[in-house]
Computed example of a mutant assay.
Amino acid sequence: MKWTVIDTISCPNTGIVFSGIVSLKMLKLIIWYEGSVIIPPGSVIEPFEDSVKIDGEYTLMKIYNVTTFKQSAWQELKDKITCREGLLDDSALCLSPFRCALKVCPYGKERPQESA
């Protein structure tokens, strides 16, 4: 079964990523997951027993939950879960004073190396 990603929200506090997905039969769901990838909108995913195929590549990820997609609940999530650092500037470094739990930055930023 193939699904297309509608939108993705990443929570820097918990490291959980939420992706809204739609099937060819227009069934809409939200998957809650954690992994080394954040699935961008437009990607095609296929679930398998122990992994997920994203745009043709197998990726290991831990799926926590799958729920029905409701636009009002999705919008509420988007309004509450934000990373202000990603919206501040075009810098390649994340200078947020808060610890981010995400394994990969949705904005492509990297944390500066901590000095010993």
Rank of each mutant, 00 (worst) to 15 (best):
residue 74 W to M: 05
residue 77 L to Q: 05
residue 90 D to E: 07
residue 84 R to C: 07
residue 92 A to P: 10
residue 71 Q to W: 13
residue 79 D to R: 15
residue 90 D to S: 14
residue 85 E to P: 04
residue 73 A to P: 06
residue 77 L to C: 05
residue 97 P to D: 02
residue 71 Q to D: 10
residue 85 E to R: 06
residue 87 L to R: 13
residue 80 K to Y: 14
residue 81 I to H: 00
residue 68 T to S: 11
residue 77 L to W: 08
residue 70 K to L: 15
residue 93 L to G: 01
residue 97 P to T: 03
residue 93 L to Q: 05
residue 87 L to C: 08
residue 92 A to Q: 12
residue 87 L to Y: 09
residue 84 R to N: 12
residue 79 D to M: 13
residue 97 P to G: 00
residue 83 C to V: 03
residue 97 P to E: 01
residue 77 L to Y: 07
residue 86 G to D: 00
residue 80 K to I: 12
residue 82 T to Y: 08
residue 83 C to W: 00
residue 72 S to P: 08
residue 91 S to Q: 01
residue 95 L to M: 05
residue 96 S to M: 05
residue 71 Q to G: 07
residue 86 G to N: 05
residue 92 A to Y: 06
residue 96 S to H: 04
residue 82 T to D: 07
residue 76 E to H: 10
residue 94 C to F: 01
residue 86 G to A: 04
residue 76 E to D: 14
residue 84 R to F: 12
residue 87 L to K: 10
residue 87 L to E: 04
residue 95 L to W: 03
residue 71 Q to P: 07
residue 73 A to I: 08
residue 90 D to I: 05
residue 77 L to M: 13
residue 88 L to T: 09
residue 95 L to Y: 01
residue 89 D to A: 12
residue 95 L to Q: 00
residue 77 L to E: 06
residue 72 S to C: 08
residue 90 D to F: 08
residue 94 C to G: 00
residue 97 P to N: 02
residue 85 E to I: 03
residue 93 L to F: 12
residue 68 T to L: 10
residue 73 A to T: 10
residue 88 L to I: 15
residue 70 K to V: 13
residue 97 P to K: 04
residue 89 D to I: 06
residue 74 W to C: 06
residue 80 K to W: 11
residue 73 A to G: 07
residue 75 Q to P: 04
residue 92 A to I: 09
residue 73 A to Y: 12
residue 93 L to D: 00
residue 82 T to P: 03
residue 80 K to Q: 13
residue 87 L to H: 09
residue 96 S to G: 05
residue 77 L to P: 00
residue 83 C to R: 01
residue 80 K to N: 14
residue 93 L to S: 04
residue 83 C to Q: 04
residue 79 D to N: 15
residue 86 G to M: 03
residue 79 D to T: 14
residue 77 L to K: 11
residue 68 T to G: 09
residue 78 K to C: 11
residue 96 S to Y: 04
residue 82 T to E: 09
residue 76 E to P: 01
residue 81 I to Q: 00
residue 79 D to C: 09
residue 88 L to H: 06
residue 84 R to T: 14
residue 73 A to W: 11
residue 88 L to R: 15
residue 68 T to I: 11
residue 70 K to S: 07
residue 72 S to F: 13
residue 75 Q to S: 08
residue 96 S to E: 00
residue 93 L to I: 07
residue 82 T to I: 15
residue 91 S to V: 02
residue 75 Q to E: 14
residue 69 F to C: 05
residue 91 S to D: 03
